[in-house]
Structure formats: structure tokens, C-alpha cells
Amino acid sequence: MREKRTSKPRRKSGRRHPLATVALIAIGLAVTGGAYAAINSSTATADTRPVASQSTIEQGEKLFQANCATCHGMGAAGTSAGPSLVGVGAASVDFQVGTGRMPLAQTGPQAEQKPVQFTDDQVKALADYVASLGPGPSIPADHLTNGGGNAANGAELFRINCAMCHNVAGAGGALTEGKFAPALTDVSGVHIYEAMVSGPQSMPVFNDLNISPEDKRDIITYLKYVQDNRSPGGFELGSLGPVAEGLFIWIFGLGSIVALTIWITAKSN
């Protein structure tokens, strides 16, 4: 929900941006060179790059110094409290800040999601600034994240690569030492893609050789399918599997049955 809200206005502001025409041409070029784009993802995801200008980078730098430099250091070179961000790319910043994980509220087993602290423009500016420090994965193009791929292929890839932590239905799961894989039930396609290329927290990086951009799109398609289509069997009980089912039958199933037995035997007295 939160991600949807934040991602939509960003696209809107993108269209209204003074340099939107340039971006549009860039997208047009990227789509026309389809075959090339399919192989080289950096071109495919480069559509937002031209939007980055010196002014947004400067704005991002100011925001960075005010909000992030305490831990990540001036110039994002890293300190003992936080890693260097040179080369993490715009995708990582957009994910960490855009989902509210950064700036970190407190140290703990892992950065928790919280309300997003910046506007979409500010997130964009921060991403541009960090991207300007060194090359890294950029924010993915819309056609990779809008869920227009093959859900069956995505489901299979998701089961093989993701389900051991995130659960087959994306309900999330536990990791060691208090860490956990979050539920994917309300994460936007852009953020899912960015998480795969940047590997936040305990998550491994799934680079383009590992899972191709099209396969990533398929995975997002599957997750969107699960998000948009309620279970055909009724309420999902959190999609947690047999634990939730067992708890339900003991508390509500057997509970109501016991209440009924009491009712039946009480009537006769």
C-alpha cells in the first residue's frame, strides 16, 4: 500500500519533469533497440538516467549530508557505523529509502520497514546522488516491473530461488538471530526488482546473469498475481501453512464444537 502510493506519484512527477521529453526519447530508443535491450539490461534500465541532473545530484548531496552521513560518512565513504555506498547504485537507495528502511531508526537484527521519511523527489535526488558516486544497478524500467510477464515461469523461479525464506505465497519467514524475510504481499514491483538486484539485509544479490531481467519480471508477475487474486478457497489465514490451519481448527473449529456440545447437553437439564 505504502509502496504503491509512493511509486505512483514518482511516475507522475517524472512525466511532468522538465526533462521528460528527453526521457521519453530515451525510452523510445530503448524499446526500438529491443534485441539489444534484451541482452544488455543496463541499457534497458537506463531510461531514468537522463533525468538525473546536476541540480538533483546537488539536492541529493545536501539531503545525504543531513540525514545519512552520520553513519555512512561524508561522501558516502562509510564509517564504522555504516557501510560505504559508493557503487551501490540508485536501485539500492530507492529500495532502502523508498520503503522506509533508511534512515535507520535504531540498530537491531535488521532494518525494519517504517513510514517513508522523504518525498518521492527527495528519494530520487538521494538515489541520483549515490548513483553519481560510482556505477551500480539503477532503478528498473516500468516494463520490467509492471507485472506483464509469464506468471507460471515466475512462480517456478520464485519457488526455487525465493520461497525458502519468503514462503511460497510470499508470506515471509524467519531467519537466524531475529532476522526475517519480510512478507511480499504489499511490495511494489519496482521495490521487488530493486531488492533482487541490490540484495538488501540478509538477501543475496540476484544479478542479471543469475536471473535475467525477463525472469525477474516474471517473478514480479507471479507476486502481483498472488497480491491481486485472493485465494480461491476462501480466507488464506495468512498463507502461513499448516500451523495457521492447526491453530484455527483447535481454537475456532473445536472451540465452536465444544460450545455446541455444551449447548446440546445443557438444554436437557
Binding site: 519457488r159 525458502m164 525464506c165 511460497v168 498472488v226 501453512g241 492447526g246
Partner: peptide, 18 residues
């Protein structure tokens, strides 16, 4: 949700019935 059996994947929250 679980899909067909394949010996390699395991889902988080894999439990037997109660």
C-alpha cells in the same frame, strides 16, 4: 501455491499438519 514437488525447493513455514 506450493506447486509440484521438486526435491530442490523448500518453502519457509513448511510444517506437517498439526
Amino acid at each position: 501455491n506450493y506447486g509440484p514437488y521438486d526435491p530442490s525447493p523448500v518453502s519457509a513455514g513448511t510444517q506437517p499438519d498439526w
